[in-house]
Design a protein around this nucleic acid. Structure first.
Length: 634
DNA sequence: AGCACGCCGACT
DNA sequence: GTCGGCGTGCTC
């Protein structure tokens, strides 16, 4: 007779903070041996006939709880979707952020799809997968990346700003090749790898780079763009015995990877890596926690360096690695000398840049990066749809405002008497953002793209113009410098080897950091400033939001003194926000105390049902957000 | 969230 | 006496 542990300890699937702990249920005779750690079950809740979903976190023989235990009602699925190490990670990440573990689990585990699950369970257990041979990463000191992966090391890798042809006419950034090679090393050693990228376009590149060196059966995509069945199917593939490389956007960091050997993050400074759902744990922080917990390697790869990673380098947690030999792209800041050409001066483009871009356009694609709103809609011929070009210099036409006469973004010439050079049409229309273009060919083309949405060009662009640098740099934000450097650096990396990039209208430290390609130095000096000003990531911050009474009460209840209490300021009608500024060493304790306040607020808050007739202010709960940089304009 | 428990004002 | 108001507390 099979006897198993008879008590299941579960996390119930509820957003209520006061329920974020283990609840014990007896495993009925009929389910002993079937109820397993990591599976979803259904348990009775509060009163007869009511149930909630729950995850089995532990199976034990005895329990401290002295009341009467209820029994597990039913098994939702026998698949252990919440791996023990992911449960531990969820607990630790939630604790650090004063949030609920189940909120992390909700991000980590996709919804069940019965049909998909049935097919997966019916499939033969782990078909044999082709072996993987390790690919040596190119462009870095021999053995450095390899040893980091085998020793569970942590590196901040400066990516090589070039494109690589990984298959016939398939070009990707060198960064993708580096991460793919790293994954192959891990897989060859029998360990899985998780690679997280900020967005879909990056994921495409990474998938291309991986496909070139790994069997398709070893690659799993797990991202938010997938349909629920696709996502669940991909998720289930991770729960096997074979080492896989799992790629996706931020939630992929919680994938149930078998025998995890490596976590790689591309462009950790991209705001898409920050989680908009409570408890707002960024991919970077989750990766740091998980790599430490599981002893796996951790690679941050980027063309520029975030201040957060630079801080980790300075405290010695992460080691910086630059390409050997160094690769220096040709970046020409053109802040001071504005063109002598009268018309080009109007558009504030130096004539040298203007001339080179024009010449480059004879031989191949040219990229023009513009700031997000304003310029972005392109002008096209009403009749044939071709993009409108300047009659004088072939530059892109744009409208400053909806009322203004279209003008050339390069030479400034007004597009009066314009005609289409394709069909001789004379009318222009604004074309909104049509489907995003991911790639362009090697033939001459003028590509105008908003920052962060630049297509990659086969063989690289012959010239790159960073047109709205001054506009981007003028934004009022704590992170404006590192953001600009990231946007520009990523665009620079799309240029062909030796092709020029012109940074228009920007000077100073930012321009020299870009032209000398020393983003780490910039991050370091930025961090010096943040230390002086006591801004994150030199210090940590947490925001506390809610009604004035709730926030005041919570802040007053904190026993340890943060360095600073800023606010409260009104952020919405009836809601205020206070910011606590504190040292890293205080983080854990502060999180614990604020968490207790959130729970206290949730359990004591009562709506005045008397005011039914009069719709009073919407009652707001107490919300705590750690490392919230939004108040700093990020 | 819901839902039961519990302790004070007008009632068959 | 007791029916029922909704503030308070709990969920294994």
């Amino acid at each position: 007779m099979a006897v198993g542990p008879s008590i299941a300890r579960v996390w119930v699937d509820s957003p209520l903070p006061q329920l974020d702990r283990l609840f014990d249920y007896r495993v009925p005779e009929a389910l002993v041996g079937e109820v397993a750690v990591g599976i979803r079950v259904r348990v009775p809740w509060r009163s007869a006939g009511r149930f909630v979903d729950a995850y089995v976190i532990d199976l034990v023989d005895s329990v401290e709880f002295t009341g009467i235990l209820s029994e597990v009602e039913a098994i939702v699925s026998i698949v252990p979707v919440l791996a023990p190490e992911v449960a531990v990670l969820a607990r630790r990440a939630a604790d650090r952020a004063a949030g609920s573990a189940i909120d992390i689990v909700r991000v980590a585990v996709p919804g069940r799809q019965a049909r998909v699950e049935k097919a997966w369970l019916a499939a033969p257990p782990t078909p044999y997968l082709p072996a993987v041979s390790a690919v040596v990463p190119s462009g870095y000191v021999a053995g450095r990346i390899e040893s980091a992966i085998s020793d569970g090391g942590r590196l901040a890798i400066n990516a090589i700003p070039l494109g690589v042809e990984v298959a016939e006419a398939v070009w990707v950034g060198h960064w993708a090749v580096t991460l793919a090679a790293a994954a192959s090393i891990s897989l060859a050693a029998g360990k899985s790898a998780i690679l997280a990228v900020p967005d879909y376009r990056d994921q495409e590149q990474l998938a291309d780079a991986l496909a070139a060196i790994l069997p398709a059966q070893r690659i799993v995509r797990l991202d938010a763009r997938q349909s629920n069945p696709d996502r669940y199917r991909a998720f289930l593939r991770c729960i096997g015995d074979e080492a896989l490389v799992i790629i996706g956007n931020r939630s992929v960091v919680y994938a149930p990877a078998k025998n995890l050997g490596l976590i790689g993050l591309w462009d950790d400074g991209d705001p898409l890596h920050s989680e908009p759902l409570a408890p707002y744990v960024s991919t970077r922080d989750a990766a740091l926690l998980r790599s430490e917990q599981q002893g796996c390697a951790l690679l941050f790869v980027g063309h520029s360096r975030s201040t957060e990673v630079e801080r980790l380098v300075e405290v010695g947690w992460v080691e910086s690695l630059s390409p050997t030999p160094s690769v220096l792209p040709k970046v020409i800041p053109t802040a001071a000398q504005v063109s002598g050409d009268r018309l080009a001066a109007q558009a504030r483009i130096p004539s040298s840049a203007w001339r080179e871009a024009r010449n480059a356009l004879e031989t191949g694609p040219v990229l023009v990066q513009v700031a997000r709103p304003g310029y972005a809609p392109r002008l096209a011929c009403v009749d044939c749809g071709q993009s409108a070009r300047c009659l004088r210099c072939e530059g892109p036409l744009a409208q400053k405002t909806s009322r203004s006469v279209p003008a050339c973004s390069w030479c400034g010439a007004l597009a009066v008497d314009w005609h289409c050079d394709n069909c001789e049409g004379t009318r222009l229309k604004l074309v909104g953002a049509d489907r995003p273009i991911l790639t362009v060919g090697p033939e001459p083309a003028l590509v105008i793209a908003t920052r962060g949405a630049e297509p990659r060009a086969a063989g690289g662009y012959r010239a790159v113009l960073l047109l709205d640098g001054d506009r981007m740099a003028a934004r009022e934000s704590l992170r404006v410098g590192e953001d600009c450097l990231r946007w520009w650096s990523n665009a620079v990396a799309l240029a062909a080897r030796g092709a020029p990039t012109f940074l228009v209208g920007v000077g100073g430290a930012l321009a020299s950091a870009l032209s000398t390609w020393r983003q780490s130095d910039y991050a370091r000096s930025e961090l010096v400033d943040r230390r002086r000003l006591r801004f994150p990531p030199a210090v940590r911050v947490a925001s506390v939001t809610g009604s004035l009474e709730a926030v005041s009460k919570a802040v007053a209840a904190v026993s340890i003194a943060p360095e600073d209490i800023l606010g409260p300021v009104e952020t919405a009608p009836g809601a205020v926000r206070t910011i606590l500024r504190f040292d890293y060493a205080q983080g854990a304790e502060l999180a614990t105390e604020l968490r207790a306040e959130v729970i206290r607020n949730a359990t004591s808050r009562r709506r005045s049902l008397a005011a039914k007739g009069a719709p009073g202010p919407i009652p707001v709960g107490l919300r705590v957000r750690f490392d919230d940089v939004e108040p700093f304009g990020a």
